[in-house]
Design a protein around this nucleic acid. Structure first.
Length: 553
RNA sequence: GCCCCCGUAGCUCAGCUGGAUAGAGCAAGUCACUUCUAAUGACUCGGUCGCAGGUUCGAAUCCUGCCGGGGGCACCA
């Protein structure tokens, strides 16, 4: 009996009470009843506070209502006991057989266990990183790469179709500055003051020279273009290769230039004009974002005729919407927080509802320490911690996992020593180790000729540790659904850590396979199914984070 | 000045859309491997949930004010 089934059973019980006239609910019976796992064991396998919530509306004492519900719910075969506690909680115990059945269900469901179709039909656009193609990706980008990709996987697991999109800012003044910086380095000169000064610039310049042998003999204006364009192509390719290595794969790399090569910008303006949000003033063209709470109106076309970045952004959003996406999610760093107000207002200006078609998630910044010193990440100053270095220093699995396991709205301080440590102060190995342990048991079982099949006796799984583990496995579907709904993939990681811990405790007290020349009993078989189910849950969860589930460690 | 995020054990952080006695890992100390992976488990120590009010059966969680830290407020990208 899963929490979902228990919840349905409670709804059914309430419905019976109402139908029989034993209970009056003016607003009707709620469609779902929240069932939670109590922290204290004495409070049962599951508990619900539904009586406390309904008592006022029903005009009865919460404990009396809980008592009525208790008497009704125990008639269900899967419920072993129900008792009223405290101000009106209902503490429930599930029968071993009903609970143990889950293990077989998980094994049968396999890779699909934990997935659902609650968001089926939804077309989600998830934009993240969107770095300028003028330098290597750094630590900040790496956090969004890991979190964004995990978020995409989690949302996909609820049935939605998710497009991962990277917006390439390949237009504007910074591209020329980038070209000029490369060109200067190629000639052994210092880049301009406002240019790019990182050590990578000289390396990249050398690559351009290698790729285009005659470049240094080209006329200056032509040479600038060659450096800019070739440097752009090489730098973008490097970003793509590194993200690939981090297992973050984008479906669409969307070039800002392509918006301008097509009529997308004009098209966006048309939309604003239709909505009456465009106006001219001081020789510039503006969007009236103050109609929707922005603190000032925003310029789209400057008085010198140049388009602003925000003009591109607006066109891009309209483009996404016309490709059928709803919602469009933006994952931005805290340094872009000032952008949220105008993005939301922009969505309203083109006729959408901010918070529905457009969602902005702000992630806080990351700091990384090594030997107590902060690794700096200023691209322009040149001392950067790049994605490449992080992968080499920490490894893909620990890097991804560590960045994903914290909520994005909390600022983060990470220590290199912790992330590379191969002990249980490193949660990624704690979870992976549990998986490897489980895989090992399954290998040993196969050697003994014991197979996992559906005909086990579920009621054998009757001890406390087995019950704890079964209840942990039962949580995966709602953890995934909740993580998707709240856009918080870190919940999956935390869940895996809890579940791994619950498994280790089970392993400590419950022998799975027969020892020596012992006969194979129903208990052995049942526990083996539980082991197979646990392995499946950890593997599915790690898969949602894009972290590997090793068979051996 | 205005806006956003954060403030929980010595450290790094959870806290399940308001629930019962606030948790985990690390750090400090103790114990358990002839037995399926000890990268594990058991136990001890450790707290005015920044401060003050408010909302209610009930607040770390919601509201207001204050204090402290981070970030942001361009006809830049």
């Amino acid at each position: 009996m899963t929490p979902e089934q228990l919840s349905s059973a409670l709804v059914a019980a309430l419905t019976r009470l109402v139908d029989d006239g034993r209970l009056t609910l003016p607003d009707g019976v709620p469609s779902t009843v929240l069932v939670e796992r109590p922290k204290v064991r004495e409070h049962g396998d599951y508990a619900t506070n539904i009586a406390l919530q309904l008592a006022k509306r029903a005009g009865v004492n919460p404990r009396d209502l809980a008592q009525q519900l208790a008497e009704e719910i125990v008639t269900d075969d899967g419920v072993a006991s129900a008792e009223v506690a405290g101000p009106g909680f209902l503490n429930l115990r599930v029968s071993a057989g009903a609970q143990g059945a889950l293990a077989g269900q998980v094994v049968t469901a396999g890779d699909s266990y934990g997935r659902s179709d609650v968001n089926a039909g939804q077309k989600v656009n998830l934009e993240f990183i969107s770095a300028n193609p003028t330098g290597p990706l750094h630590l900040g980008h790496t956090r969004w790469a890991a979190v964004g990709d995990a978020m995409a996987r989690v949302i996909e697991a609820t049935g939605a179709e998710v497009t991962r999109e990277f917006y390439v800012n390949d237009r504007g003044n910074q591209m020329d500055v980038f070209g000029a910086s490369l060109m200067a380095r190629a000639h052994g000169e210092e880049p301009p003051d406002d240019g790019y000064h990182g050590a990578y610039v000289a390396d990249l310049a050398a690559k351009v020279v290698a790729e285009v042998p005659g470049v240094l003999d080209q006329p200056a204006d032509e040479q600038l273009v060659t450096f800019r364009e070739t440097g752009y192509r090489l730098q973008l390719a490097e970003q793509q290769a590194e993200l690939d290595e981090l297992r973050t794969h984008f479906d669409v790399w969307f070039s800002e230039r392509s918006l301008h090569d097509s009529d997308s910008v004009e098209h966006g303006f048309d939309r604003l004009r239709e909505q009456g949000r465009l106006f001219e003033a001081d020789g510039a063209t503006w969007m009236r974002t103050t109609d929707f709470g922005d603190d000032k109106d925003r310029v789209l076309v400057r008085s010198n005729g140049e388009l602003t970045y925000f003009a591109s952004d607006t066109a891009y959003y309209v483009n996404k919407r016309e490709r059928g996406f709803d919602p469009c999610i933006y994952l931005l760093g805290a340094d872009h927080h000032g952008y949220v107000g105008r993005l939301s207002a922009m969505a309203a200006c083109v006729g959408d509802t901010p918070g529905e078609q457009l969602e902005v998630l702000i992630g806080q910044l990351v700091k990384i320490l090594q030997d107590g010193e902060e690794l700096k990440l200023s691209k322009r100053a040149g001392t950067i911690v790049s994605l490449r270095e992080l992968i080499d220093l920490i490894g893909v699995d620990p890097l991804r996992y560590t960045l994903i396991r914290y909520p994005v709205d909390s600022p983060l301080t990470l220590d290199v020593a912790d992330m590379t440590s191969k002990s249980n102060d490193n949660p990624v190995y704690y979870v992976q180790y549990a998986h490897a342990r489980l895989a090992s048991i399954l290998r040993n079982a196969a050697d003994l000729g014991i197979t996992v099949d559906g005909s086990y006796d579920a009621s054998q799984l009757s001890t406390e540790r087995e019950g704890d583990l079964l209840r942990a496995l039962a949580e995966l579907p709602r953890v995934v659904a909740r993580a998707a709904e709240l856009r918080e993939p870190h919940r999956v990681a935390r869940y895996l850590e809890d579940t791994a811990s619950t498994f280790h405790k089970f392993y400590d007290t419950c022998r799975v396979l027969p020892q020596g020349d012992e006969d194979v009993t129903d208990l052995h078989r049942a526990r083996l199914v539980l082991v197979a189910a646990t392995r499946q849950v950890l593997a599915n969860g790690l898969g949602l984070l894009g972290v590997s589930a090793p068979e051996r460690m």
